[in-house]
Design a protein around this nucleic acid. Structure first.
Lengths: 111, 111
DNA sequence: TATTTAGTCAACCGGATGGTTGAGTTTTTG
DNA sequence: CAAAAACTCAACCATCCGGTTGACTAAATA
């Protein structure tokens, strides 16, 4: 799949999709597992997943009736490099990163 | 301006807007200057610029009848950190980055 | 075999996006 | 003062996006 900058950035612009990616950091998950914490239909989540797959950010493997979803962070590389080319950001502080990710998770839950 | 991840990523999802940001790497520019290389109306470019301003990626200063636009790469920081948290990307290779940016510029010109 | 589970598909809906044109405002310039 | 330059604003348009529901297929299970 040609994961263009357009697709990757557009995928990441939605908080539901970002939360899905964060969930997949821990484990591969089935579509139903991914949908469980969200207050929206399975169909809606399925569409979000398809968008992430099209962007290359998620890979899928069907075993039986279950479609397992796994993270493919490599698909972010070009986009990440693109952004870095603008940054004169200081090196990432790991504590700051942790707090940031927690805040982002809370935001997703309450919005 | 609260530059949320939503706004920053959505801003970057459009090739016209990315090209505008690249143009501003070199110099601050007036709205008309930014619009010149594009085959689209000044109004359309003005809208794109407003979106980038809302995302915090561009700052504006009006002097006389001219609105000068300048890059604010700091607004990318949170988004960049977010992506980095997924990456186990190897350190950025500067040559690769250069080739990548040139290719991106060509893409923008021809699409 | 009958039923549940996992997931997709198709149709629809309201609102956002990306573009247009035409008119209007303000500042500079001749 | 008159005209040009540098924008903005408002209205409109087609398409995309994020969500819904209801019907469907395929695999596991009782």
């Amino acid at each position: 799949m040609a994961a263009t900058l357009d697709h990757v950035f557009a995928s990441l612009a939605d908080p539901t999709r970002r939360q899905i990616l964060v969930m997949l950091l821990e484990d591969d998950l089935a579509v139903t597992d991914i949908a469980e914490p969200f207050e929206m239909s399975l169909t809606a989540i399925s569409k979000h997943i398809n968008i992430l797959v099209a962007a290359g950010l998620i890979t899928q493997e069907k075993r039986g009736r279950v479609k397992w979803c796994g993270l493919n962070p490599a698909a972010m590389k070009d986009a990440s490099i693109w952004m870095e080319s603008f940054g004169q950001f200081e090196a990432v502080n790991l504590d700051a990163l942790e707090r940031f990710l927690e805040a982002e998770l809370d935001d997703d839950k309450t919005s």
